[in-house]
């Protein structure tokens, strides 16, 4: 990624240039001498090659252009997958840029709490989603708050915290992609997934 210079050539050139310049300086010779631009201290990249301005007949500088080979990396971290049941509950919906649960949502959440009371081996995963207006990161945080509001309501109904997980997908898993109020409203949702065999 970084220009690799033949360091020896570079430093030798600069050394010679300095010696020549010093020679002029010591002799008090005020003749114009083109000097290669030199990078400022603190620059991130290594200094470039000296520029041969006045002596084009010299053997030109040769730079070897190289590049680091980039091997493919395998993702090492793969947690075990848990069996999931989706579609038992309706999605609940949110207003634009808001994360409070409304009365319709509370009806759904009551039935979720009911289900969890009857099925003690299962837990619930609440996915928070957003419409695609706005930026990825903020929507991820907003989706998190939506799922968390739903979870908080479940906790208020007596569901233990350990049986409700939240995850946000922000705007990354939209159900539809039209730019209409109807589609946006459909995407501003929390979705419920039952996780089996995970207490």
């Amino acid at each position: 990624m970084v220009i690799k210079l033949t360091q020896e050539v570079f430093s030798m050139k600069r050394f010679l240039a300095c010696v020549v310049i010093m020679g002029f300086a010591v002799l008090g010779c005020a003749e114009k001498q083109a000097v290669a631009p030199v990078p400022q201290p603190g620059e991130m990249t290594p200094p470039s090659q000296p520029k041969e301005v006045e002596q084009p007949k010299k053997v030109p500088v040769t730079e070897q252009v190289t590049e680091q080979q980039i091997a493919r990396v395998e993702s090492g971290d793969v947690p075990s997958k848990v069996e999931e049941i989706s579609g038992l509950f309706k999605d609940i919906y949110f207003d634009y840029d808001k994360y409070e649960v409304d009365e319709n949502a509370k009806l759904v959440l009551r039935s979720v709490a009911d289900y969890l009371t009857k099925n003690r081996a299962y837990k619930i995963l609440i996915e928070g989603h957003c419409d695609d207006r706005g930026t990825s990161e903020y929507n991820l945080a907003l989706g998190d708050k939506r799922a968390k509001s739903a979870k908080d309501f479940l906790l208020s109904l007596g569901v233990p915290s350990s049986r409700a997980d939240v995850i946000s997908y922000g705007k990354e898993k939209a159900l539809c992609s039209e730019r209409t109020e109807e589609c946006w409203a459909k995407n501003r949702r929390a979705h419920f997934v039952i996780l089996k065999g995970k207490k």
Binding site: E52, V53, P56, P60, V61, E63, Q64, V65, T66
Partner: peptide, 16 residues
């Protein structure tokens, strides 16, 4: 001429 320089590389690195 302001400067003259040679650049050497392997065939796959035309763009770099």
């Amino acid at each position: 001429e302001l400067f003259r320089k040679e650049y050497r590389t392997e065939g796959s690195l035309v763009r770099p």
